[in-house]
């Protein structure tokens, strides 16, 4: 030890432990910027919620009647004699279109996810994943346009019905729209299943399908359920495509060939024609609050379910 010191005397120990260099300031700056970025998302969302609530509050405090709002099928905000604000038909419209969309999207997206996660590999897998992501990026107005110009005449021709803008049309369009994001999330859930389960099952002589059916799907079921719920949330909140493909007429549907009107589409179509601050205007915002609450609950449930799978 002493010999070493004799050979190369070490510099005097720097004991100014409190000095700050530029790295310190940069680190602080980065911290602040990240904080602003993170917090602003939350602030904006709360801001939107507060705005919608304030705009809709006048209605909730005045013309709002619980039983009429939720159980009356009559939405006549512009009636000369007596305005009514019943959402039942609109809720039925949204629910029927979303429900039908899930009938289309669930088998498609689960099938695609299983194929991508378990059967394809290498280049093919990458290609499929990128394509699916691309599909998710198609603007909803394009889907609505397809519903209007392609599906509409097709449905009239095939089923011999007078109008092709109905639950069937909007359901298929919405299903195809929701499928890519559902596929993507379902595929993540399948990929999260540890590979040793696959190896174990295969080593015991399970065929590919037996392995998927008996091991992978049960192990991934929470994630798959989460994917479906996110799809439901997507369908629920979709506006433009639904507005264009449903026919936009107020109806309590009795078959898939009935035209309906969705909650979201109602807001989009009517808000521009109302006087700011009028009852009608405020009622539309009340629908907004309702939509906000429902999608929030759906997303929350989906999130909790997906988290459940990570823990288990």
């Amino acid at each position: 030890m002493e010999q070493n010191q004799a050979q190369s005397p070490s510099p005097p120990l720097d004991t100014r432990f409190d000095r700050l260099n530029s790295d310190w300031y940069f680190d602080k700056l980065a911290q602040v910027l990240m904080f602003i970025g993170g917090i602003s998302v939350i602030v904006f969302i709360i801001g939107i919620f507060v705005f919608v609530s304030i705009e809709g509050f006048g209605f909730l405090a005045g013309k709002f009647e619980f039983s009429e709002f939720f159980f009356s099928p009559d939405w006549r905000p512009t009636s000369q004699t007596k305005e009514t604000y019943g959402l039942l038909a609109l809720m039925a419209g949204t629910a029927s279109v979303t429900g039908f969309a899930m009938l289309v999207a669930v088998p498609f997206s689960l099938g695609a996810a299983i194929y991508i996660a378990e059967f394809s590999s290498g280049k093919k897998r990458e290609f499929l994943k990128v394509t699916i992501e691309l599909l998710a990026a198609i603007p909803s107005v394009v889907w609505g346009f397809i519903g209007l110009t392609i599906m509409n005449p097709l449905i009239i021709q095939i089923f011999h019905v007078p109008v092709g803008l109905n639950i069937l049309n909007a359901g298929i369009i919405l299903g195809l729209m929701a499928a890519p994001i559902m596929t993507s999330i379902a595929e993540d859930a399948l990929k999260a299943v540890p590979d040793r389960y696959r190896e174990a099952a295969e080593a015991m002589g399970a065929t590919r399908w037996q392995m998927i059916y008996k091991v992978i799907l049960p192990a991934a079921k929470n994630g798959l359920l989460g994917a479906i719920l996110l799809g439901v949330g997507r369908g629920f909140g979709e506006t433009m495509a639904v507005l264009m493909a449903t026919g936009h007429s107020i109806n309590l549907p009795t078959s898939v060939f009935d035209s309906v009107r969705a909650l979201t589409a109602t807001i989009a179509a009517e808000l521009g024609e109302t006087a700011v601050g009028s009852d009608h205007y405020q009622a539309l915002f009340a629908i907004g609050i309702f939509l906000f609450a429902v999608t929030f609950v759906i997303n929350l449930v989906a999130d909790l379910i997906v988290r459940g799978v990570r823990k288990g």
């Binding site: 040793r196 190896e199 174990a200 099952a201 080593a203 008996k214 192990a219």
Partner: peptide, 10 residues
């Protein structure tokens, strides 16, 4: 039988 025990999650 594998190095890491791999019972199935059932």
């Amino acid at each position: 039988v594998f190095q890491r025990p791999n019972p199935l999650p059932i």
